[in-house]
Lab assay of single mutants.
Amino acid sequence: SISSRVKSKRIQLGLNQAELAQKVGTTQQSIEQLENGKTKRPRFLPELASALGVSVDWLLN
């Protein structure tokens, strides 16, 4: 799922939720909701993929 991929990649990069949120241009709460499965397809998906160094396709599939 996107939530597990985001969380595992974030941890692999040594980032906390607030640091990832800053790179993406969103809030820590938005990252938390995404990782908890409350958000399925965030509006900041391209920025998120870029910050994590992955493709949008990788996040979604």
Rank of each mutant, 00 (worst) to 15 (best):
A21N: 02
G53I: 03
G37S: 06
L59V: 04
I2D: 02
V6T: 08
G14Q: 07
V54Y: 02
K23R: 14
S3R: 08
N16G: 11
E35T: 02
V6W: 00
Q28C: 09
D57K: 10
L59M: 04
L13I: 07
S3W: 08
N61E: 10
Q12I: 08
E19Y: 04
E19R: 05
S50Q: 14
S1M: 10
L60H: 05
V54Q: 03
R43Y: 15
L48H: 00
K7Q: 09
W58R: 02
S4Q: 14
I2G: 03
L13Y: 05
L13C: 07
L48I: 07
T26M: 08
R41L: 15
A18K: 11
L60W: 09
E47A: 14
L52V: 01
G25K: 06
K7T: 09
R5D: 01
L59I: 09
K38W: 15
R41Y: 15
E47Y: 07
I2S: 03
Q12Y: 09
V56L: 13
Q17W: 12
T39A: 10
I31K: 12
N36Y: 07
G14W: 03
A18G: 09
L52C: 02
L45E: 02
P42W: 15
L60A: 08
R43I: 12
Q28M: 12
A18Q: 12
K40D: 12
N61P: 08
G37M: 06
S55T: 15
R10V: 01
A21C: 03
S55R: 07
Q17G: 06
L34A: 03
T39P: 09
F44E: 04
E47H: 09
V6G: 02
I31V: 06
V24E: 01
V54P: 00
G37Y: 05
L15D: 01
K38P: 07
G14F: 04
W58H: 03
K7D: 00
Q33K: 13
K9L: 15
S1T: 14
L52S: 02
G25Y: 04
S8W: 15
S8V: 09
E35F: 02
E32F: 10
V56K: 06
A49M: 03
F44C: 07
R41F: 15
A49T: 04
K9N: 02
L45W: 05
L34K: 02
L48R: 00
I11V: 10
E32M: 12
N16T: 15
T26F: 04
I2K: 03
T27E: 06
S55K: 07
L60I: 13
K23Y: 08
A49H: 00
N36W: 08
L13G: 03
